[in-house]
Design a protein around this nucleic acid. Sequence first.
DNA 1: TTGACAAGTGACCATTTGGTCACTTGCAAT
DNA 2: ATTGCAAGTGACCAAATGGTCACTTGTCAA
Lengths: 195, 195
Amino acid sequence: MKNTTKSRILEEALVLFAENGYRGTNLRELAARLGLSKSALYKHYESKEAIWNALIDMLEAYYAERFGSVDNMPKTPESKEELLSMTMGMIRFTVYDERIILTRKLLITEQFHDERIRRLATKHFMEGTKNIFAAVFQRMMDAGIAKQDDPVMLAFLYTAPVTALVHLCDREPSRHEEVIEQIEVFIKDFIRRYL
Amino acid sequence: MKNTTKSRILEEALVLFAENGYRGTNLRELAARLGLSKSALYKHYESKEAIWNALIDMLEAYYAERFGSVDNMPKTPESKEELLSMTMGMIRFTVYDERIILTRKLLITEQFHDERIRRLATKHFMEGTKNIFAAVFQRMMDAGIAKQDDPVMLAFLYTAPVTALVHLCDREPSRHEEVIEQIEVFIKDFIRRYL
DNA sequence: TTGACAAGTGACCATTTGGTCACTTGCAAT
DNA sequence: ATTGCAAGTGACCAAATGGTCACTTGTCAA
């Protein structure tokens, strides 16, 4: 991102809002972390709520880019092994990248307090990922790499357990490795059963 | 529950903590909802944190009873149809009961702010439910109702998608019926594929 | 009847927090 | 050099909030 004060505020706001929630975040600490005085924040955003809304704008843009267009879908795996390695690559990234972890925490903890967050959560944790993999499986079936089946149901059977384990990673960071192992076991099992 | 003031406080605290979070809850509103003055609360609990801790004690007791002992497991279904109807019964209850909805919301939104809540969340959303159904499937296999398979993996494949859909219900109450329909479709699909 | 005590009240306090404002500072354009 | 302005500061304000305390009330045992 641009290194302007305005965007630095959003980056730091993500950290605080994700860790302490909207109500648990106070502008003095946010300012202090940026080496600013609280009143400086008001030169860039007119209120705490405005910071919050701008942050959600940013997250919405990110998710639109990630889930919105067919172009940004993962390339179709050309074998079952490639589906495994591709998915594991995505998972490892998503589970270790600090910014993405914080984003998920924000979606989780604020989903009942903000309408736009609620929509993002559904898109990210359910429909979005499911649709992506429905398309992937459809292509794999067309290419004869996977058995014929209902691609949407298959995508759901694939993404729901993985998402559950990613949540587990967020909740219990100390079990990261063990859980990633579980994800790999699950995917191999899935491939054996369905593809 | 006993209708003492002390337990009424906890019941109302569950509502407020679940809807507004720990930090977003204030004792004046809690007291007002109970028709009490704020200082009366302090006759029963020594601080806001004490109310919080007592509430978690209550939830822990509830989950220990529900997931803790083999006795409280659902009775083993005697046919595949009975597995479907039993599960749907559980789901319908869990998805419509206001108190349970609030409890899930609390687990979800406060899981990163409190260690005991974090543990409860893992137990409730992952290990607990999984273990219950692992036992159910094991018994069904022993009874020859289900094909031989790894009961733990099967339980995971069963509970993770259902749990994801229950979360969706919590997030989008207006889609309740549609989502419950999805759960039923999923379970029928699951039974056809595995059992 | 009285004394003791749990339960409840309302006024009060200190702290936290979002927000405002008059003022300074550094830099870029003329 | 001067002017204009975005960026930043620190003091201040009002509201909200957790917590305390002296006082009242209703009930039950002796």
